[in-house]
């Protein structure tokens, strides 16, 4: 049974409860305290320690009645792709697909090589490189952790030079039948968790409803997104083009390029081997 998220931007009020509930449950540190000036978005992106991130898209348009403002918010998250770049890239097998169809990083296996980071077409997964506390490490302050848990995290992260981090779809909670922390917290049920087939149906009905109301609603990732990735287990309802929410319009699964790469390398190697053979062992070479 595959489970996932359907995140509906038309129900999002941008409260960021998902970000906090996620951090609280997964005991993740803050990513620093920097004002960006980008609307109400000061966490800016998904990171190794920010597994839900709310986009704030401000738009203005001028119509006959004056300036119309709109403000669309969307809680972004790991897409848990059907064919996941990070999972395919992972050389240790730390990233697996679990029994809920989610893409899960096993922190005890991950060696922090960072190959998954560059292999995600959505820029989701990242390394957690340090955990600290207090003024000396304010950027990563986990002022809220118990000492023993902080030490455990330090051992797992700091001493090893980093592990990859991203949404687990609350694997630990799902194991005991609980809903992921973000979906549970979300006050307006913009984040819905459930069996993926149900969610897709719900999403399609929702799009029809909204379109009937004249809303420019579209789904992202409910069906195959192309590029070999397939459908997304965490998909979205948008009211603007994907780029407005920092989502790729045409993502591509990186591993689809491997065959060509190996062929190109083989071509070069063969060419050079032939030339080398001629130089070293051919008529002229041996002479």
């Amino acid at each position: 049974m595959a489970t996932g998220f359907f995140t509906d931007s038309t129900l999002c009020i941008g409260c960021k409860a998902c970000e906090v509930a996620c951090k609280q449950w997964n005991e993740l540190p803050s990513d620093g305290f920097e004002f960006t000036g980008n609307s109400y978005d000061n966490t800016s992106q998904l990171s190794g320690t920010t597994w839900r991130h709310v986009d704030f898209v401000e738009r203005e348009s001028v119509d006959a009645e004056g300036i119309a403002t709109s403000w669309s918010m969307l809680s972004d998250v790991c897409k848990h792709c059907t064919h996941a770049g990070c999972l395919e890239a992972c050389p240790t097998g730390a990233i697996i697909r679990n029994e809920f169809g989610s893409v899960f990083v096993q922190p005890d296996i991950c060696n922090g090589c960072g190959y998954c980071v560059v292999s995600c077409p959505f820029g989701v997964i990242d390394l957690i490189e340090a955990v600290g506390r207090g003024d000396d490490a304010a950027k990563y302050s986990v002022a809220t952790l118990h000492d023993d848990r902080l030490n455990e995290r330090k051992t797992a992260v700091q001493a090893t030079g980093g592990v990859a981090g991203k949404c687990t779809l609350c694997y630990d909670r799902q194991r005991v039948g609980m809903v992921p922390a973000c979906a549970k917290a979300c006050p307006t049920e913009s984040i819905q968790f459930g069996e993926i087939d149900d969610l897709r149906e719900r999403a399609k009905r929702r799009v029809e409803t909204l379109q009937a109301r004249g809303v420019d609603a579209r789904l992202y990732g409910a069906d195959d997104v192309g590029g070999g990735i397939g459908a997304l287990n965490a998909f979205f309802l948008l009211t603007d083009s994907p780029e407005a929410y920092n989502l790729p319009a045409e993502p591509v699964l990186p591993s689809t390029r491997q065959a060509m790469g190996y062929a190109a390398a083989a071509f070069a190697a063969l060419t050079l081997a032939t030339i080398g053979w001629a130089i070293f062992r051919g008529e002229g070479g041996a002479a």
Binding site: E19, K23, D31, F33, E34, V142, A143
Partner: peptide, 10 residues
């Protein structure tokens, strides 16, 4: 609370 402070830090 760092989880909240990072959301609206200043």
């Amino acid at each position: 609370i760092p989880w909240l402070a990072e959301l609206q830090p200043e």
